[in-house]
Design a protein around this nucleic acid. Structure first.
Lengths: 210, 210
DNA sequence: CCAAAATTACCGCATATGGGCAATTGAATT
DNA sequence: AATTCAATTGCCCATATGCGGTAATTTTGG
């Protein structure tokens, strides 16, 4: 009965059938161990915090505290534990909410047993298993898809606007008059279709203009 | 000589040896075709834009225009083409610059031929192949690791600050006086360690406070 | 080469903003 | 029960900001 090198897994899944099945697959495979399985988040969270496993398979659609909320509050307290979300179908919002909450992997419930075990092993070894289409969505979300309508000078000023510099300081740094800075900023606002510094900063950051 | 279902690949790689090797591997494999290989970005970009292939293997460390720059300017013009970056070693900055530029995959140059072909096939089918550790880094970058120091009221006001609402409108929406709004904002600034709306917006967006 | 856009600059004005000071309430801790 | 601290509310003032208008010079693109 080896224990040292087994990957300890905890399952949180409300469907009793699926929970039993997952437990059997994992606990029955060499190198893996699953002695704890929960049907809801509350008791699972208590147990996980008390005795952190290596990996948690977390259902997204749980009654009560959702799996995403569970990950959010647990992730900071059990830093060494990785979370793999389980879901029926891919849903953009759930995916991003999950990874923002701290989930490391994202799998569909109908993932074949062999792939499931491979995914658990992969997170344990520092990877982030996910389906091909989810990976693409995650990567695509980084892409700056708005082409920058501003000139070089305007971008320079926008960057300083975002840092909270006032007109006078910007003027001093760029060796132009404060009024010229204002003129540029008017043009920036017009091109970004905003009418205040706050909105400009928001747009600049969201669209990756700086 | 089948053409319809072959994945057409273009290689941009300055090392002649590696370029030849990659070309041989790809063009010699059924289902893949590589008739164009370049040693630098300039001519590659011209050719790729004129006749867009399915996939481009792009070296990151190119003389002249870098591979990242190449992807950045090409990606918007040849929407149907996917880019896989090739690199000697994993480097956080290069990885994120690449995916922000529009690269879909990210592989090490010592990737075995079989894995290379699998990766090309994967991007062609809508995935985003990358090494396990890169996937982890990409996913980790989403994690909100700053816990929110603001009260409910302050968060509500911060959200409106980010939308560029002025004090009076915020006051009206929350049924409090403008002066109270200002007081809250002062506390928000103190907690976020900023001293202007622009900086607060930037911090809120960067740290995922809203 | 010419037209359009970018960059520079100035004026005036109404309002928004940030900083300092202070009081009350409510929750938490001692 | 006493006390402390955070949250909420409020006011005054100097300055920053946004907006409207005008205009000269330089750069860019067709």
């Amino acid at each position: 009965m080896p224990a040292a090198h087994e990957i300890e897994v905890v399952i949180v899944e409300d469907d009793g059938e699926i929970r039993r099945l997952l437990t059997l697959i994992i606990d029955g495979s060499p190198g893996f161990s699953c002695k704890r399985a929960f049907s809801e988040c509350e008791s699972a969270m208590e147990s996980i915090e008390k005795d952190p496993p290596d990996v948690v398979l977390m259902d997204i659609g749980l009654p009560g505290i959702s799996g995403i909320e569970g990950v959010r509050s647990l992730k900071d307290r059990v830093a060494g534990t990785d979370f793999i979300m389980l879901t029926i179908q891919e849903d953009d919002q759930s995916i991003f909410d999950s990874i923002c909450a701290g989930a490391t992997g994202y799998l569909l419930k109908d993932t074949p047993p062999a792939d499931l075990l491979a995914a658990i092993k992969e997170v344990y070894e520092g990877g982030s298993p996910m389906t091909a289409s989810i990976a693409r969505r995650v990567v695509s979300s980084f892409k700056k898809n708005v082409e920058n309508p501003l000139t070089k000078r305007e971008n320079e000023i926008l960057a300083r606007l975002c840092d909270g510099e006032n007109y006078r300081d910007i003027a001093g740094a760029l060796f132009i008059s404060g009024d010229t800075v204002r003129a540029h900023i008017k043009n920036i606002y017009r091109k970004l279709q905003v009418s205040s510094r706050a909105e400009a900063v928001k747009k600049a950051l969201k669209d990756g203009l700086i």
